[in-house]
């Protein structure tokens, strides 16, 4: 049984549907990427799973139970945590209170502070700045904080939306290092990314989205070696600014 099963889900904003009858699964302990350009529905799907926008039709099963259209707080309690794009840390709160906020739904208050300490040790860049306002952190530090804040809820499934957004290449490297570590620890992760290569490196499987549909899916390695995928998403032929960037990355690696 899959940890998360999305069956023929259609959803969007108001009357405008962005996701058209999409099916996606994430197994226990698995890392899954949602890939695609801007506006293909990656974030929209994640928002629907976390209950921020309504699911128009179809089913979402989590641990075998239907969870579509539950409220976000009910979903967090069940173990689905969404780390939003653009980090969205609480700017005027200290790093440690941001972490505490992530554990809002937990009732074991003692354990929560124990976990805060654990996060400080695990991510020393947070430990060094624990008393400073989160808004004063650098973009990369904020992204680490956002992921750590998500982990504070002790999620069964962590959904990370566009963690590389607006970060310097060094920070992207760092943040993906953290994601790789999480994956090693067995955390189930759903990752929406435009940085295809980085995303595939830290996940087992990927879905490629275009215009609200899954146009391709499979294990990360087989996608990387697929001719069609390379052409469209690693810019082997088509170019365009996104493609060119990846091509450049490929060029330096080969």
């Amino acid at each position: 049984m899959s940890l998360l099963e999305i069956r023929d889900v259609t959803c969007g904003y108001g009357h405008r549907m962005v996701i058209d009858s999409m099916s996606v699964t994430v197994d226990e302990g698995e890392g899954v990427s949602l890939l695609g350009h801007n506006g293909t529905g990656k974030s929209t799907l994640i928002r629907a799973i976390s209950g921020v926008i309504p699911v128009k039709s179809g089913a979402i099963l989590f641990e075998g139970k239907p969870v579509a259209n539950l409220t976000p707080d009910a979903l967090v309690k069940r173990g689905i945590v969404h780390v939003p794009a653009g980090r969205r840390v609480f700017p005027n709160m200290s790093v440690e209170h941001n972490l505490e906020a992530g554990a809002f739904t937990r009732t074991d208050r003692q354990e929560v502070w124990h976990d805060v300490e654990a996060m400080m040790e695990r991510f020393p860049i947070l430990g060094e700045r624990r008393k400073s306002a989160a808004g004063l952190l650098s973009g990369g530090e904020q992204q680490v904080l956002a992921v750590a804040r998500g982990l504070m809820a002790r999620p069964k499934l962590l959904m990370v939306d566009e963690p590389s957004l607006g970060l310097s290449p060094t920070m992207v490297q760092f943040v993906f290092g953290i994601l790789a570590e999480l994956r090693k620890d067995g955390t189930s992760v759903m990752l929406a990314e435009q940085n295809v290569r980085k995303a595939l490196a830290v996940t087992d499987r990927a879905y490629v989205l275009a215009q609200g549909r899954v146009i391709m899916d499979g294990p990360s390695e087989s996608l990387l070696s697929s001719e069609a995928f390379r052409e469209d998403y690693l810019g082997a032929k088509r170019g365009g600014s996104f493609g060119e960037l990846v091509e450049e990355a490929l060029g330096t690696q080969s």
């Binding site: 707080d73 939003p84 969205r88 906020a101 809002f104």
Partner: peptide, 25 residues
Amino acid sequence: TRLGRATKCVCQDIHAAQLMGIPIN
């Protein structure tokens, strides 16, 4: 208080607060 701190979160970023499982309603 727990609710008080949650209120501060909501004041700073209602959407992020919602994702923390804070019942904004």
